[in-house]
Design a protein around this nucleic acid. Structure first.
Length: 645
RNA sequence: GCCGUUGUAGCUCAGGGGUAGAGCACUUCCUUGGUAAGGAAGAGGUCAUGAGUUCAAUUCUCAUCAACGGCUCCA
């Protein structure tokens, strides 16, 4: 007798060992048809795997993340089978499920797969799926596994096998494809009804740039054709939010090959947007006790030797600039912190001065590999909303929390609700990668973890992701197509104060070393604006948007009245313009809607006579007529609401 | 940097061994209008750059540059 506890707490009794599929059948045929895998005592298993003792079981379907993952993992095998059939002799690396679909890394020898080949692979997958091949799980001795792949000549699987212990090796077989795999998998291929190969890319074997580059095929599958269609529509919609596309359409920024790759040119509207963000943060920083500083765009190489940046990144930086006479070497500023350290060092400090918070919108230049550049999110010249807080060790946690408050306020004001936070700690086994003592690292890591806990923020801990000089807390936000970008960052640093021999005189009249906190709530203006564009699809909050209002005269006869309205609005600090073109109202409205201008004011005979404006709101439509004064009130009210968070 | 794809007008794209096309945008003219595109005419391109093949290259080959999708990297 076996007792199976289901998620609702009910217990079902079975005479003999059962599989997840058996349990599903005993509940309903419909469930049995939909079950993709079974979670047995918290571990995802094949639905066909025998459960021989009492267990709690959750049957997984397409509605469960783990059900989807199982389906996609099985789909990766299906794709591999199709590729093997179409490209005999292909060798296979790894093929996991991912957030949206799956991929498989394949060594095709001299052959190349391009997007033209996707259709035939999709078709082959569908043909194979229809044959309803079961996925068989087999436990296999290591020696047999090795001989299988040695015969096949697949060195990648052999390498993976080297790391596995005898007794924990399983093979999965479906159709003509056998793979070294931990599983779990679908009962058979039949749930895979809709297939799309999404893209092909190169990927280094085991993520190591020194090793061979394999062909990585990305795909996704669904149990229904409609879900695939919906997913593809979603992708199309996301593309419309792409900041590179909107940046051009809304005249925010451009790139020029003449100027150089990764060097954005901010157009007037983009510059206004960015300046407004800067002013917003500057105000917050004034209130929080930050002091502005300004430092040059270049710094002597020795400065970066002192900071340690030169040793770490010198080889991967823009080459130093030399003076013609003296032969001095200057680097384009890759970081603001060394400059700020020099400012701190320029005079004696008492503990009474601390914390000292130096803030600067500092433009830095970093050589990023050409393949890395991406719109405004990854550039070679960018402006950090940087600040460095010099404080006593006791002040670290409070200062850290104050910075978190600023970041959280900004995210709230801009409606970034679904951000993630990541605590990046060092890899304790890798001493090469970091500078500074273990003791200081421990102190800094503890301070961050505690501050995050005390703020009640949910976060993930990433070991080995710390900067070389200290641990950090990053705020990550996703772009339109789900890629994660780091925006705000707070980093504790015990190392630069050491390297620059920074000091303060304590109440004991002895010299002490301050702690430094690097922080940038936006991260970089470029990346932040990029993510903001995608986040709001170009419909910026009223207080930020470069053009708040456009006045649309019905005909030339009302230009004079339009100008009167404009003057009034400008006096109320509202950013408005007049569309003087000799176009019909419908046309002017359409263009203003496409430009995503929040308010349109239609003025014609009626309005001129009654001293009103007809207000139309972007995306909503006609709000009716009101006096310009009342409209100005509407605008300032809306801004007040947006900023009251 | 690596793998793959792409590069034709400001933008979106069609075309194709015999020195180029559309729509939108732009300019001018007509039109003076009421909540998502009024009409006409015009101007605009060394077909990314450089070599090669050819009687002839924007088209084919190669290289370079850049963009795009990934990988690696990211102070």
């Amino acid at each position: 007798m076996i007792n199976i506890t289901l998620p609702d707490g009910s217990i079902r009794h079975y005479e003999a060992p059962v599989t997840g599929l058996d349990i599903a059948r005993s509940i309903s045929e419909g469930l049995a048809r939909n079950v993709l895998a079974a979670k047995v005592n918290g571990v995802v298993w094949d639905a066909t795997r025998v459960i021989s003792s009492d267990a709690s079981v959750k049957l997984l379907t397409w509605d469960d993340e783990e059900g989807k993952a199982t389906m996609w993992h099985s789909s990766a095998h299906l794709m591999a089978e199709a590729v093997e059939a179409l490209y005999p002799g292909a060798k296979f690396g790894i093929g996991p499920d991912i957030e949206n679909g799956f991929y498989y890394d394949i060594d095709l020898g001299d052959r190349v797969i391009s997007s033209d080949d996707f259709e035939k692979i999709e078709q082959k997958m569908l043909d194979l799926a229809r044959e309803k091949h079961p996925y068989y799980r087999r436990e296999i001795p290591k020696a047999d596994a090795i001989s299988h792949f040695a015969t096949k000549g697949d060195e990648y699987k052999l390498e993976l096998l080297e790391e596995l212990q005898d007794g924990e090796i399983t093979f999965y077989e479906s159709g003509h494809f056998t793979d070294l795999c931990r599983g779990p998998h679908l009962p058979d291929t039949s749930p895979i009804k809709a297939v799309k190969i999404l893209s092909v890319a190169g990927a280094y074997w085991r993520g190591d740039e020194k090793r061979k580059m394999l062909t990585r095929l990305y795909g996704i599958t669904f149990p229904k054709q409609k879900e695939l269609t919906d997913y593809l529509t979603l992708l199309e919609e996301a593309k419309k939010r792409d900041h590179r596309k909107l940046g051009r359409e809304l005249d925010l920024f451009i790139f020029s090959q003449q100027v150089g790759q990764g060097l954005p040119l901010w157009l007037p509207k983009g510059a206004q947007l960015r300046e407004r963000l800067e002013q917003f943060l500057k105000k917050l920083q004034r209130q929080a006790g930050y002091l502005p500083v300004i430092t040059p765009h270049i710094g002597n190489v020795d400065l970066y030797k002192t900071s340690g940046h030169f040793a770490k990144y010198g080889a991967d930086s823009f080459r130093p600039i030399l003076t013609p006479q003296e032969g001095e070497a200057f680097m384009l500023k890759p970081m603001n912190c060394p400059h700020h350290c020099e400012i701190y060092r320029s005079r004696y400090h008492s503990y009474k001065d601390l914390p000292l918070r130096y803030a600067e919108f500092g433009t830095v230049y970093r050589y990023e590999q050409s393949g890395e550049l991406h719109g405004l999110t990854r550039v070679r010249g960018f402006t950090q909303d940087d600040a460095h807080i010099f404080c006593t060790p006791d002040q670290v946690k409070d200062e850290f929390k104050n910075v978190m408050d600023i970041i959280l306020y900004i995210f709230k004001a801009l409606k970034f609700q679904d951000f993630e936070t990541q605590i990046s700690l060092r890899d304790k086994n890798d001493h090469e990668k970091y500078i500074g003592s273990d003791e200081n690292w421990d102190k800094a890591e503890r301070a961050i973890i505690e501050a995050v806990e005390e703020k009640g923020l949910k976060s993930v801990i990433a070991h080995g992701e710390a900067a070389f000089y200290g641990p950090k807390l990053d705020f990550m936000v996703r772009d339109a197509i789900g890629r994660k970008w780091q925006l705000g960052t707070i980093q504790v640093d015990y190392n630069l104060p050491e390297r620059f021999e920074l000091e303060y005189i304590g109440s004991d009249n002895l010299q002490h070393r301050p702690v430094m906190i690097h922080r940038a709530p936006f991260g970089s203006m470029e990346r932040f604006v990029a993510v903001l564009i995608e986040h709001c699809a170009g419909n910026f909050p009223l207080w930020l948007t470069p053009e708040q209002v456009i006045i649309l005269p019905i005909s030339e006869k009302y230009h004079e009245y339009a100008e009167k309205v404009l003057k009034l609005l400008n006096n109320s600090e509202i950013r408005a313009q007049i569309d003087y073109r000799s176009e019909k109202a419908g046309r002017k409205i359409r263009d203003a809607e496409l430009r995503k201008i929040p308010f349109m004011l239609v003025v014609g005979e009626k309005e001129a006579e009654s001293g009103t404006v007809s207000v139309r709101k972007h995306g909503e439509g006609d709000l009716g007529a009101m006096t310009p004064e009342k409209f100005a009130g509407v605008v300032s009210d809306e801004i007040a609401v947006l900023l009251d968070v």
